[in-house]
Design a protein around this nucleic acid. Structure first.
Lengths: 158, 158
DNA sequence: TATGATAATGATAACCATTATCATTTTATT
DNA sequence: AATAAAATGATAATGGTTATCATTATCATA
């Protein structure tokens, strides 16, 4: 907790930016979240502790936290950016259920290795990737077919 | 060409929708494109052949083409949907250069297999995926460091 | 501890790709 | 033709995010 705060303070001073009560509060609340949170959700939580805080400040601070390596933007493709913890959290990808939108975090060393190899084969120096697997989760598989998918678009990226 | 048109007509009638001159024209122009095109770009191309066509019609028709399996939405995460040919085109993923935004299409059977296995390991029935690799292309690697990336967000999906 | 200089805040307007609305026109069917 | 259903084009609306800007807070230095 305090380690993340130190990291943030360090990042800020390194970039001639300033630690403020608002930024501290937003970081605190963010660190208490789990999974993936939208700026909107974080704003409503922060507002409970400081009624006067502005939504723009939450947006701005989340960008800063991302730059500082404490948060990570996750784009599921539904037009709403989500954020998750980045510090001391292993890289992972996501499997998302098309029916209930449940999402789990996964990692596969084999895939990572093949991605590296694939990029190299095309002469690219790989710096990162985004991989989302879409499917039906075990629970929804048992149930009969229901509607309500995260996005109306096809998931297979051509 | 005519095969795609037949497929579209078939899809339309199957869904009690109608083939119209506008839809025919939009499909024609779309089929003459390569790579990834935005609705905006397609609209400007179609407008050269029919000044009276409306932008909403292009948006609507691209959705229809996607549903019909002739087009595929591609979301690079910069807030602008792109479309590419889907019919008789193999599934593929993308490698995108962070410097010059050049993108190449790739496919790796090994990765596909491991994705399937990974999903199954978590009890999911895999229906699709999106995978984007980000890196520096060979040309940009030679050049010194330049700026200008596609998106300001980090690429590694947490 | 003033005092500039600079950055941050909060409120709000702007942005912008995409969708919804709606009056009018086109198409298919009787 | 007449009717019903769908499509079109113009335009307004949507909604997450960003930019703007006047005001306030913070920092370094004298």
């Amino acid at each position: 907790m305090t380690e993340e705060k130190d990291l943030f303070a360090e990042y800020l001073s390194r970039n001639n930016l300033r630690m403020t009560p608002q930024r501290g509060l937003i970081l605190d609340v963010f660190l208490r979240t789990e999974g993936h949170i939208t700026s909107e959700e974080l704003y409503s939580r922060v507002k409970r502790k400081d009624r006067s805080i502005g939504q723009a400040t939450v947006y701005r601070t989340l960008k800063l936290l991302s730059d500082a390596g404490l948060a990570r933007e996750v784009d599921f493709g539904d037009g709403i950016l989500r954020y998750e913890h980045d510090y001391a959290h292993e890289h992972h990808d996501h499997i998302i259920c098309e029916r209930c939108n449940r999402q789990i975090e996964v990692i596969d060393e084999g895939i990572e290795r093949l991605q590296e190899r694939l990029a190299k084969r095309h002469g690219f120096h790989l710096t990162g990737h985004r991989m989302y697997l879409y499917g039906i989760c075990p629970e929804c598989m048992k149930r009969k077919d229901r509607k309500g998918s995260l996005r109306k678009t096809g998931h297979t990226s051509g």
